[in-house]
């Protein structure tokens, strides 16, 4: 297994997939200039799903999840998030972005603001929540990711794992319905990977809809209800995790799994 096993038992009681659609992607294509990165992607995500996206480097995993909150624009096809279609209409984009949280590989905390300010900024300025209430919410989520005592420090004073947990808390403060993770543990040392994965598992246990690009196959096996394998900008295979790992169908998937497992 690539980095580590998850030791604790994952509590699956809350992890139920509803039949309500959270994200609907239809025949979506994207080009960088003339380079065709995403080709005819079709994907339906239901509320409460935990989807892990795997695939070799450059296969378009990041691009795909960045299209979902329109950090990247798609050129054809349709993306509907929570009933709102992403188009050039900025109102829709802002609406989707405030419903979808994102955690980046390099945390992207705001270095000039304290941890608490990082967490309250968007609730105050986007959701127009009073400062006091926003700070209470922020402290609640900081406790959840187990670093309330760091609230008044600056990101530069925290370890990588702590920073990533703050980044998760910062997203959660917006009370998103969907969370996107782009290789949240790739920039971390093994010890810190565990603390971040733990936080993510807790989130999954509470029923959050999650799309996770990761190389942590232990996480995929225990937490995901679906694994998607991408190559060359296409979804090559998807299945529930046990089947995916034990009985891969396509040659590309087999090759990929043989390299990382």
């Amino acid at each position: 297994m690539s980095a580590m096993e998850i030791e604790r038992e994952v509590n699956r009681s809350q992890m139920q997939v509803s039949d309500k659609v959270a994200i609907e992607i239809k025949d979506m294509n994207k080009w960088y200039g003339s380079f065709h990165v995403l080709r005819d992607v079709n994907l339906t995500v239901y509320e409460g799903e935990r989807i892990v996206i795997a695939g070799p480097s450059g296969s378009g995993k990041s691009t795909l999840i960045r299209c979902i909150n329109r950090l990247e624009e798609h050129q054809s096809g349709q993306i509907v998030v929570d009933g709102t279609e992403l188009s050039s209409d900025l109102k829709n984009v802002d609406k989707v972005r405030s419903e979808v949280g994102m955690v980046f590989q390099h945390f992207n905390l705001f270095p000039h603001l304290t941890i608490l300010e990082n967490c309250t900024l968007a609730p105050i300025w986007v959701r127009k929540i009073p400062r006091k209430e926003a700070e209470e919410t922020a402290m609640h989520f900081l406790e959840k990711v187990k670093i309330p005592e760091q609230a008044n420090k600056y990101p530069g004073q925290l370890s990588g794992g702590q920073q990533q947990r703050v980044a998760i808390a910062r997203s959660l403060c917006m009370k998103p319905r969907i969370m996107l993770f782009d290789e949240p543990t790739s920039a971390l040392d093994p010890e810190m990977i565990k603390e971040v994965l733990d936080t993510m598992i807790e989130l999954a246990e509470e029923g959050m809809t999650m799309l996770v690009v990761t190389h942590e196959m232990g996480f995929a096996q225990q937490v995901a209800n679906r694994v998607i394998f991408m190559d060359a900008g296409q979804i090559v295979e998807q299945n529930e995790p046990t089947e995916f790992f034990n009985n891969p169908q396509s040659e590309r998937t087999k090759l990929f799994l043989s390299q990382i497992l």
């Binding site: 909150n69 950090l71 900025l90 802002d94 972005r97 405030s98 979808v100 949280g101 994102m102 980046f104 390099h106 992207n108 905390l109 705001f110 900024l121 968007a122 300025w125 986007v126 910062r170 997203s171 917006m174």
Partner: peptide, 15 residues
């Protein structure tokens, strides 16, 4: 400024 700062601001819904 790293591009990530713009992206994080966008992703949080700041205009």
């Amino acid at each position: 400024l790293p591009k990530g700062q713009y992206e994080a601001a966008d992703a949080l819904g700041l205009d």
